[in-house]
């Protein structure tokens, strides 16, 4: 039998950690989509060779600490305000590649005004929108994107749309805005989905390099802790329940 040390050789490498990722251990729950999105984001930044030119804006939510994981300059924004923060960075440093990374509570509830107006101005930024249908950080409360009938800690009997409105398809709303250049909805639950999502990210970062205006990437995501399901079950639940409401694919551009 071959020794492990004989197997670990350059020629046998099938995976390499991006050098844009730091060595810090991620605080995300096992199975959470945030970690996978961070990974492909780091890979895209490395492959496009834009590490020195990228400035990230992290939100309030589970990914508030995103700045611990990617070797780039970061700003941490107040809850929902990342698009406003990113607006100023992109305008004052027009040759940098600026992105806002936001959850659904951050982007589609408290920060609705900021995202709509940043997109309507066509700010030259990438928006990465992690839609897990729940407030992960604060312990699983209802989000604007929570599905009808879906139980959360503040809708324990399931979301009642007569009381709290419908799941907000903000990505479709944003696609209506003329200054938005690229809108797509992705997921990261299978290797194929991860590859597609990475391609979308790459296109978005290339587009802002060419100053094409706002790039909006929704990633329909799992929150197995909040959903109270195993990681595997969460993926299945997402495909069955989230995808019909939030269908995959490019919406614009």
């Amino acid at each position: 039998m071959a020794e492990v040390k004989d197997i670990i050789k350059e020629g046998n490498l099938v995976y390499k950690k991006s050098k844009v990722l730091t060595d810090k251990i991620m605080h995300y729950c096992p199975g959470c989509s945030h970690g996978v999105v961070h990974k492909i984001l780091a890979e895209v930044i490395e492959e496009l060779n834009i590490q020195e030119d990228t400035i990230g804006v992290s939100p309030v939510g589970c990914s508030v600490l995103a700045y611990n994981y990617l070797h780039i300059d970061w700003q941490q924004a107040a809850h929902g305000r990342a698009p406003a923060v990113a607006t100023a960075v992109a305008r004052l440093l027009p040759n940098k590649r600026v992105f806002a990374y936001q959850g659904d509570g951050d982007l589609a509830s408290i920060g609705t005004a900021e995202i709509i107006h940043a997109c309507n101005r066509g700010e030259n930024i990438v928006v990465i929108f992690i839609n897990n249908g729940i407030y992960g950080m604060t312990g699983g409360q209802m989000a604007p994107t929570t599905l009808e009938g879906m139980p959360t800690s503040t809708s324990p009997y399931g979301r009642d749309i007569a009381m709290t409105g419908h799941p907000l398809k903000i990505t479709e709303l944003i696609a209506q805005l003329p200054a938005v250049n690229f809108v797509t909805r992705q997921a990261v639950h299978t290797p194929a989905a991860v590859r597609k999502c990475k391609k979308a990210l790459q296109k978005a970062f290339e587009n802002i390099g060419e100053k094409k205006g706002t790039q909006f990437i929704e990633v329909v995501s799992t929150c197995n802790s909040g959903w109270k399901l195993s990681p595997v079950k969460s993926n299945e639940w997402m495909v069955e329940n989230m995808f019909p409401v939030y269908p995959m694919g490019d919406i614009k551009g």
């Binding site: 400035i55 804006v57 700003q75 924004a77 107040a78 305000r81 406003a84 923060v85 990113a86 607006t87 100023a88 960075v89 305008r91 004052l92 440093l93 005004a113 900021e114 709509i116 107006h117």
Partner: peptide, 19 residues
């Protein structure tokens, strides 16, 4: 820039100042 609100305006200041 005329922002959409004072909330947005001060957060733009945050972003610019951070640069």
């Amino acid at each position: 820039l005329q922002a959409e609100s004072e909330v947005a305006a001060i957060n733009m200041v945050y972003g610019g100042a951070a640069c």
